[in-house]
Simulated assay, not measured.
Amino acid sequence: MGDHPTPQLGITFLPWWPPERLLSVATAADRAGLGEFWLWEDCFKQAGASTAGAVLARTDRVRVGVGLFPAPLRNPALLAMEIAGLDRMFPGRFLGAVGHGVQDWMRQVGAKAASPVTLLREYLTAVRSLLDGDTVTVDGRYVHLDAVALDHPPTGRATLFAGAGGPKSLALCAELADGTLVSGFRPPSTTREVRELADRVRSAAGLDPAHEIITSVPVATGPDAAERMERERLAWEAEPADGISVIGTADEIADGLRRFVEAGATSIAVQPTRDEPDPEGLAAFLGAEVAPLLR
């Protein structure tokens, strides 16, 4: 792997799976020694803060992330309260991430913004300031706060990630967040482009160059892995392309994931297929057999 640091390896609990399965998969990931456990706040399947809190309370060491909290769906003061509370109860273990939200879903709940980029800029700026313990007054296009301050801000710097797709939004993530999430069924070249953009943006702004890149990678193992992954690709309407998913043995999966690390990913969030027959077993397999090959 040359000069590339050892990445965090995690697994995602998919919102198509029933909530009562959550803690079983989370504890399997924790026991397996995986570095991260990711959740999605998807309408109208799974909320982020409640599930993250349950996982943090049941596990001992794994970092728990929500990617992504939809900015239009949550008042920034509310999200800052959620992040601050989880960060204080479980220091250094909660990773909150914000995005535009799926626009059709935002329309369904009456929260669709005419300018998602403007909303995300105002939102990330306000949440970061609140988490830093500031008293925030702002009267923006979307964010309106009048002398708001958290009674119990984080005692250290709470992690605030972001994720998006377009270049303007990705530049915003690089400027205002601690890390950027890259969605699944994207080739390693996309991770490289996001890494290079983040480096340019942060250098031009005189910011600390440290910026995490968390890449979601669809993964399947077992005798029917190829068939399951093809069904998953079709469900996501993703165009076929080299490297957008990884299947096979531990060695083959590690080789595939290493391409994303070499492209600049600091964390790999393994995205199982929604018909994965044994999520707990997959977590154990990743921890015992794949993670050592990435070190």
Rank of each mutant, 00 (worst) to 15 (best):
residue 4 H to T: 14
residue 11 I to Y: 09
residue 12 T to Q: 11
residue 13 F to W: 05
residue 14 L to W: 06
residue 26 A to W: 01
residue 26 A to M: 03
residue 31 R to N: 06
residue 33 G to I: 07
residue 33 G to E: 05
residue 35 G to M: 01
residue 37 F to I: 09
residue 45 K to E: 12
residue 47 A to F: 10
residue 48 G to T: 01
residue 48 G to V: 01
residue 50 S to I: 15
residue 53 G to C: 03
residue 57 A to H: 08
residue 59 T to K: 03
residue 61 R to I: 02
residue 71 A to E: 03
residue 72 P to L: 04
residue 72 P to N: 02
residue 72 P to G: 03
residue 72 P to C: 07
residue 74 R to P: 00
residue 78 L to N: 11
residue 79 L to H: 01
residue 79 L to Q: 02
residue 86 L to H: 06
residue 95 L to V: 10
residue 97 A to K: 05
residue 97 A to D: 07
residue 98 V to P: 04
residue 104 D to E: 15
residue 105 W to G: 03
residue 107 R to D: 13
residue 122 E to G: 04
residue 123 Y to E: 08
residue 126 A to T: 09
residue 128 R to C: 00
residue 133 G to I: 02
residue 143 V to D: 00
residue 146 D to H: 13
residue 154 P to W: 04
residue 158 A to C: 08
residue 166 G to S: 14
residue 174 A to K: 05
residue 175 E to G: 00
residue 175 E to K: 07
residue 179 G to C: 10
residue 180 T to C: 10
residue 183 S to A: 14
residue 195 R to K: 13
residue 200 R to L: 14
residue 208 D to I: 08
residue 212 E to Y: 10
residue 215 T to S: 15
residue 217 V to H: 02
residue 218 P to Q: 08
residue 218 P to N: 08
residue 219 V to A: 05
residue 228 R to T: 03
residue 234 L to A: 14
residue 237 E to I: 04
residue 238 A to G: 02
residue 239 E to P: 11
residue 243 G to W: 01
residue 244 I to M: 01
residue 250 A to G: 08
residue 255 D to C: 09
residue 260 F to W: 00
residue 262 E to G: 06
residue 274 R to H: 12
residue 277 P to M: 06
residue 279 P to T: 12
residue 284 A to G: 11
residue 287 G to M: 12
residue 293 L to Y: 08
residue 293 L to E: 10
